[in-house]
Design a protein around this nucleic acid. Structure first.
Length: 328
DNA sequence: CCCTTTTGACCCCCG
DNA sequence: GCGGGGGTCAAAAGG
């Protein structure tokens, strides 16, 4: 589980993306309870006293810690709800509980649905957006000949801006929306997506806001991708830290433009420029997505989340701010 | 003109 | 057999 990265902060990382230079709502996306604190730190860091800075630092650390605990708690609750729905005989015996809502009944599997599911590929590595909580459930799907095929079902909970109604969950794959429905047990609409990267890919995704917390969206993935993950499209191919969480240390865009890699995992950090790999067939789409405000917002949000979740980083940041303050 | 999204209607499973 | 409700289709609209 990767849940301890939800504290936002205004940072100007200057990694070459023009948008990062300007404060925008997206940069502070996710700021809610701690918005005033962070906003203060952003806006008047140059004029505060040492005492104020220390108070702000303490508050910031405290809020970050609380945010982390809450995120973990949400993940724990969802995990428990899913376990509770598992049948005693084992996970494979339970019919497909594919509804995104924790309270929704067992999904009705249609024969049409069970026929278009194949295997191979792997979407299970979609650990995205820092606050996501992933879970795997293998369910049996009845086939027309009476046998059962295991369909991989995965639920991912992601924190997003409550005001964002797009229900877009960046996970590295490209999705085409084919339907939206308001379900009985959740006032928020449920969006249905198909994998748009490969026409033959059977993977479907359902995205719906949590009924309890509108800032949490639950994405349910059905099936497995039968194609490689399109790199650079949506998810930040970050490095893994020791605890398995991702760090936004690289930006890999498949195009003729060199790829910028911001390596924050090494001592002192560094920016590495490497040549882009060979272009994907749908390079145009990838570039369009990378250039989109959503992608940029997600990029900045993830960077901020990852960085503020690192105690060493926040300590170093506080020390740097203190050094900049005039001595009184 | 092409691609994607929206949305009302329809299909079909389950109780 | 019937109705409710989730899931999908497909035409229209938008970019």
């Amino acid at each position: 589980m990767d849940t301890a990265r939800s504290s936002p902060v205004c940072l100007d990382l200057m990694v070459g993306l023009p948008m990062v230079r300007e404060p925008s709502p997206a940069r502070c996306a996710g700021m809610r309870a701690d918005a005033d604190i962070v906003g203060s730190a952003c806006g008047r860091a140059g004029s505060m006293t040492n005492g104020e800075a220390k108070i702000l630092e303490a508050k910031f650390t405290e809020v970050s810690e609380e945010n982390r605990r809450l995120t973990e708690m949400i993940g724990y609750l969802y995990a428990n709800q899913n376990f509770a729905r598992q049948s005693p005989e084992g996970e494979g015996e339970q019919p497909a509980s594919t509804a995104a809502s924790p309270t929704s009944p067992v999904g009705k599997k249609r024969s049409r649905e069970s026929m278009d599911t194949s295997d191979s590929g792997d979407a299970s590595s979609d650990k995205k957006m820092g606050t996501a909580e992933a879970e795997h459930v293998d369910v049996n799907s009845p086939l027309s000949n009476g046998t059962c095929r295991r369909i991989k079902v995965k639920r991912v909970c992601t924190r997003i801006d409550p005001s964002d109604t797009s229900l877009v969950v960046k996970d590295g794959y490209q999705w085409r929306k084919y339907g939206q429905k308001v379900t009985r047990d959740n006032p928020s609409p449920r969006a249905y997506f198909r994998c748009a990267f490969a026409p033959s890919c059977p993977v479907k995704k359902k995205v719906q806001r949590s009924a309890e917390d509108s800032s949490v969206v639950e994405a349910t993935y059905e099936g497995e991708h039968n194609h490689p993950r399109p790199t650079g499209a949506g998810e930040l191919p970050g490095c893994r830290t020791q605890d398995g969480s991702s760090v936004p240390c690289s930006i890999s865009i498949n195009s003729s433009v060199p790829t910028i890699t911001l390596d924050l995992t090494k001592n002192g950090g560094g920016v590495q420029v490497v040549e882009a790999g060979e272009a994907q067939p749908d390079l145009k789409k990838v570039c369009r997505e990378v250039a989109s405000p959503e992608f940029r917002a997600a990029l900045v949000e993830q960077m901020a989340r990852e960085l503020t979740g690192d105690r060493k980083f926040t300590d170093a940041l506080a020390a740097a701010i203190l050094r900049k303050l005039p001595d009184y």
